[in-house]
Simulated scan of single mutants.
Amino acid sequence: MSKYSDQFKLTAVHAYLEGGEGFRKVAQRLAVDFSLLRRWVSSFQKHGQFSLCKPGQRYSATYKRSVLEYMHKHQLSLRQTAAHFGLGQSSQIGIWARQYYSGSPASP
């Protein structure tokens, strides 16, 4: 279960987009980490409000591999890649990369 509700995330995104304040000020007012708010806003701008509510989704090995290839081809960070694909947590891409490069049986 997510620490923040989907409605809270959406409210935070709208507060940033409509308020004219920076990430840090809005995040401080809402008591969330500013990098988390930045990730929510980026995901919302690329994929809409439903990108904020995808907990527990499973991805195929082919999809994971395509995400990693896109990230390397376009020289994106984990956070940028997660926002591009509408993935909730950029750390998950790092896990996929470690699995892929280690050749683990659970690799993407």
Rank of each mutant, 00 (worst) to 15 (best):
G48K: 02
K25Y: 09
P55F: 03
R29N: 12
K54N: 07
F44N: 05
R24I: 08
S42C: 06
K64C: 15
W40G: 01
K46V: 01
F44D: 00
V67D: 02
Y59T: 03
K46L: 01
G56W: 10
V67I: 06
F34G: 02
R38P: 12
A27N: 08
Q57Y: 09
Q57F: 08
G56C: 08
F44G: 01
A31M: 14
D33V: 12
C53K: 13
Q28L: 07
S66A: 15
L68P: 00
Y63D: 09
F23T: 02
V41S: 05
L52G: 04
V67N: 01
H47V: 07
F50V: 09
K46A: 00
S51D: 02
L52T: 01
T62M: 12
S43H: 05
K54R: 15
A31T: 09
W40N: 01
R58T: 14
S60M: 09
S42F: 04
H47A: 00
Q45M: 04
R38S: 11
L37Q: 04
L30V: 00
K64L: 08
C53L: 12
L30N: 04
A27E: 12
S42W: 05
V41W: 00
Q49I: 08
L37A: 08
R29S: 09
V32Y: 03
R65H: 13
D33Y: 08
Q49M: 10
A27S: 10
W40T: 02
V32Q: 06
F23E: 03
Y63M: 13
A61L: 08
R65Q: 15
P55N: 04
G56A: 10
V32E: 05
L68Y: 03
R24A: 11
L68K: 05
L68V: 02
S66D: 13
R24Y: 12
K64M: 12
T62V: 12
H47E: 04
L36A: 15
W40F: 03
G48W: 00
V32A: 05
Y63Q: 14
Q45T: 03
S51C: 01
Q57W: 05
V26N: 05
R58Q: 07
G48F: 02
D33H: 13
F34C: 09
S60L: 06
Y63T: 14
C53E: 09
S51R: 04
Q57K: 15
R29M: 10
Q57M: 07
R38D: 09
R65E: 14
Q57I: 14
L36K: 14
V41P: 01
A61M: 09
V32R: 05
F23L: 06
A27F: 13
R58L: 11
E69C: 09
S51M: 06
R39P: 10
Y63K: 13
E69A: 11
F34S: 10
R39M: 14
C53D: 11
H47W: 05
V41Y: 00
L30I: 03
F44K: 03
Y59A: 05
S66E: 15
V67Y: 02
F34R: 12
A27K: 06
R38V: 07
K54A: 02
F23R: 02
D33T: 09
H47P: 04
K46N: 00
L68M: 06
Y59S: 05
V67A: 02
R58P: 00
L37F: 10
R29Q: 07
F23Q: 05
H47D: 01
K54F: 03
S43M: 10
A61K: 14
R24Q: 11
